[in-house]
Design a binder for these strands. Structure first.
Lengths: 379, 379
DNA sequence: TAAGCTAACGCAACCGGTTGCGTAGACAAA
DNA sequence: TTTGTCTACGCAACCGGTTGCGTTAGCTTA
């Protein structure tokens, strides 16, 4: 319970007056007796197997009988029991998404806007493949692998989508060892010794190219002292974006100044504080590349508070393409990730693995799109 | 596929060169042969039933035997098959969340930031009750009820959480008729004829009180011509917020001017365009209550573009308490909804229903919290 | 030593579908 | 009438656990 005031329905306006006791008496028995195939068979005067076949439109059952049984089933509101079906087929037609963003204590502050977009893509594509989607919180430390054992070993799902990939991610070795079907959102095991033999597909947004393109955009505007704020060393996406930044500098023959490449947390507050520091330098940078839009928000607010006008002279660029970027003042230049698309593709790849027919091209790179707005271009 | 450029891994930098063909050969057989209880029984030289009991720490099995079997199971990496268990127990220990926000085409523009917070609360609480969470897209029209039939009738989940409640929501009657366990995020069937007999719990944020408090905040600042932008007539939350606005006016003996209460879509663009109109009036309102934070963003941008300073003289207030509100210029006064908390409570309520022991108080109102920022107060 | 009791475990049915195989019955051909 | 064929459907095992009840071995008690 939080400190939120919670009042009861009886105190609310115009609410029906129901106590828990009354409700307890009203609450119907749980509907435990749903019609089964055996029940339909009994009523139709045939064998279970005949019903099963009729419902699946097996041509060995004559059309008339089929129709009769189907009508009866519809009339009884029959729905096949998923567990029974799953048990037979040794499949559950379910895929799981494991995400850290579901944890309440990730320190990301408010919820990750990413996840919904990803989920929308996943849910949409999964539905069209007749798959259910299971949502699973990622655990950390000792219990991390236990999640996958429970979900895949226990057949809660047939396969799983991994996110938040790290270098030397030990989940990969574990999943391979147990032959648990999975796909990755994010680059795989290129740093594993057996990288070239890693057999599962992945899809990712090309973070390195995106960061390079963004940095080149700043360089093209004439900036020479470009700071890069953000990220730790934990996840691939952070490392890759930083690599893209350095790549752009190198291509432009600009020196890489480690003091300008600043590690940080992932909240807007980190962006705010670090930008304050940067602006207090004798010779501050003229542009800041924030590793995420959320960080960029803090960057821009710090500039605002310091009286620095964001635009061509002092440019800020973010990464992600979250909706909020266009509402900032000035609107934020950023690299938009096609998250929906990633979700769809991940499901397609995973379904292919589950069918045993991996796709022609198991490794999909999606290019982020540079969206130039006033935070670099001015009005 | 979008118009995004998609290139292949082989074109990416430093990527292992794997073709689909190679991968097809590498991809291990799906792990179909996981140990079963029968397998363990065979190896331990006992009966299936003994293994089953030993694994459940049944005291009728002597400690030594129990330990031996448990060790063997751990060594074989045994995980019980969920489908088999579910089939036995006539329970799946799974709850489903049905949400419109997962549809790609809801017209909401970018993804609903709500859902993640709600999901985080749900996932957290569900995990502590040992429940899985299934994510299901809401369908509309003809196929809407079919979703519930499939999920609950087919035993994909034991119960379901409904969102986006509407007046006369025919889903409620359907679920009651079939005795499908469910809880509501949002007010229930008070408009159903049998409202007082509706037996299922619900939890909701008190939208009416929130809107009233927000409006009273504006009135307290001296505003007399307060516009209310937003919402349609479809969902309870829209109607209730509007009702709260009117309630505050009535309590303050201010006239209700229908021209100031403007229906709209739910995107920031709607907020933008409607505010432009309002500002062009001969005698524009001095304050705007936007029905959601997203709309408020559009409102504030329109004011900015029109050269109207948002603050004490021209105040804007939103509703939701999304993280983005604090990043706006000026930061947005809003009513924060305790969404996480709602998620937790919904799960608690649903679990209670599934246990057959409904909670003492089945109807929970959570109060939104007024967060006053510079958009009404000034700097 | 036989009857009685309990601890320890096996047997088999069951959950709700699926499926390989067998067979009864209808009908045609010999 | 017998043999053969094909259609329409039944029988029973099976998926992987769970559970009520029965049985056996071992020990105590009369």
């Amino acid at each position: 319970m939080t400190t939120q005031e919670q009042h009861k329905a009886s105190a609310g306006p115009n609410e029906p007056q129901q106590s828990g006791e009354q409700l307890r008496q009203m609450l119907p028995e749980l509907n435990t007796a749903r019609p089964t195939i055996a029940e339909i068979a009994r009523r139709a005067g045939v064998n279970k197997s005949t019903v099963s076949r009729a419902l699946r439109d097996d041509p060995s059952i004559p059309q008339a009988t089929r129709q009769r049984i189907q009508d009866l089933a519809a009339q009884l509101n029959y729905v096949p029991n998923a567990s029974a079906r799953h048990l037979n087929h040794a499949r559950t037609d379910t895929i799981a998404l494991v995400s850290r963003a579901l944890n309440l204590d990730t320190g990301a502050g408010s919820a990750d806007p990413f996840l919904v977009e990803l989920l929308a893509g996943i849910a949409d594509e999964a539905a069209s493949h007749h798959f259910d989607v299971l949502l699973v919180r990622a655990e950390e430390g000792e219990r991390e692998l236990g999640v996958y054992q429970r979900i895949l070993g226990g057949r809660h799902a047939d396969g799983v989508i991994l996110t938040d990939l790290r270098p030397n991610d030990h989940r990969l070795a574990y999943l391979c060892r147990h032959r648990y079907p999975h796909v990755l959102f994010g680059r795989s095991a290129e740093d594993l010794a057996e990288a070239r033999l890693y057999p599962y597909p992945w899809a990712e947004v090309d973070n390195r190219s995106g960061a390079r393109i963004g940095t080149e955009h700043l360089i093209g505007l004439g900036h020479r002292r470009i700071a890069f704020i953000g990220g730790g060393d934990t996840y691939h996406w952070e490392r890759d974006r930083r690599a893209g930044y350095r790549e752009a500098l190198a291509r432009a023959n600009l020196p890489y100044d480690p003091r300008l490449c600043i590690p940080s947390g992932i909240s807007q507050k980190d962006g705010y504080l670090l930008t304050q520091q940067l602006l207090s330098w004798e010779e501050p940078p003229t542009a800041i590349f924030a590793i995420s839009d959320v960080l960029a928000v803090g960057v821009m607010r710090a500039a605002l508070d310091a009286g620095v006008q964001v635009g061509p002279a002092f440019s800020v660029i973010g990464f992600d393409g979250l909706g909020l970027g266009s509402y900032l003042t000035p609107p934020l230049t950023t690299l938009r990730q096609p998250i929906n698309e990633v979700g769809r593709i991940l499901v397609q790849l995973l379904c292919a693995v589950l069918r045993g027919t991996p796709p022609e091209e198991p490794h999909v790179f999606l290019q982020p799109e540079l969206i130039v707005r006033a935070s670099t271009r001015g009005y």
